[in-house]
């Protein structure tokens, strides 16, 4: 059913909080996502011409890097992981003609039923974030599942029941939790750091939040002045050597 579930106040909204301040752009999330989901419920995630001149393939996570200027964080490099935001108003779901795309009422995860997808690609056109990718081998659309086959997986130790991208992040820039609960750790983090929605002007109400980079403050000590060790030629020479070496 591609009509959206009625949003209930206090309903669970599982999602990610991604810290653009601490993301180092290492692509570990993308690789572990690919690894888990290749063998997971949405697998395989095929690659095409992977050892050829034009490698191509299906990834649910894409890591961009940008240079920013101005704004609160000043000029800096920002690494930006891009994946499905599990929106509250996902047009990718409502445009689906078959009911293959759906948003779960119980936790807000947006999924594709691979058995009834006709591969019309309209959902990917309806997503402003470029989150859905087409499987050319199976001719159906695939997308981030928020690792639905990990987070509820009782065969995994409880500590591992989080999305693969979150588990693998070496700088802990990715957080997973219930953004519908205002007192959850992720909601408090968003509140403390001023977390934002991407492209709110399009009205998709994404669940995932991004924490903006903080302005870097580099502590600098007092600058040492070269000492003058007296007067005369040798003192001047020493002073010159000192200045040169102090540079």
């Amino acid at each position: 059913m591609t009509s959206l579930p009625q949003p209930a106040p206090g309903a669970t909204k599982l999602g990610l909080v991604i810290d653009l301040d601490t993301c180092v752009g290492c692509h570990a999330c993308a690789v572990s996502c690919k690894e888990w989901n290749h063998g997971g419920a949405s697998g395989p995630l095929p690659d095409y011409d992977s050892r050829g001149a034009n490698p191509d393939g299906l990834w649910f996570n894409r890591i961009h890097s940008y240079e920013t200027e101005g704004g609160a964080c000043g000029s800096r490099t920002v690494n930006f992981p891009r994946s499905c935001l599990h929106c509250e108003e996902p047009q990718c779901v409502t445009v689906c003609p078959t009911g293959a795309s759906y948003k779960r009422a119980e936790d807000g995860i947006v999924l594709v039923n691979p058995d009834i997808c006709i591969g019309c690609k309209l959902c990917s056109w309806a997503c402003p974030y470029g989150a859905r990718e087409f499987d050319e081998d199976e001719s159906i659309m695939k997308k981030c599942t928020l690792c639905v086959d990990r987070i509820y997986n009782e065969t995994l130790p409880e500590a591992e029941r989080e999305p693969a991208c979150v588990a693998s992040c070496p700088s802990r820039a990715r957080h997973f939790g219930d953004l519908g609960d205002p007192n959850s750790a992720v909601s408090l983090l968003v509140l403390a750091r001023g977390g934002v929605e991407l492209m709110p002007e399009l009205g998709y109400k994404p669940t995932n939040r991004y924490l903006p980079p903080r302005k870097a403050v580099v502590p600098t000590g007092p600058v040492e002045k070269p000492l003058r060790a007296g007067t005369g030629f040798s003192a001047s020479l020493l002073s010159l050597v000192d200045r040169v070496l102090s540079r």
């Binding site: 894409r62 890097s65 940008y66 920013t68 200027e69 087409f134 002007e201």
Partner: peptide, 24 residues
Amino acid sequence: GSAIGIRGATARPLDKPHFTQNYI
């Protein structure tokens, strides 16, 4: 800037996630 969640800043791409084409 709005697409990557950094308001009031100008942004320009530095590194793409991949060097060749993809579906998007």
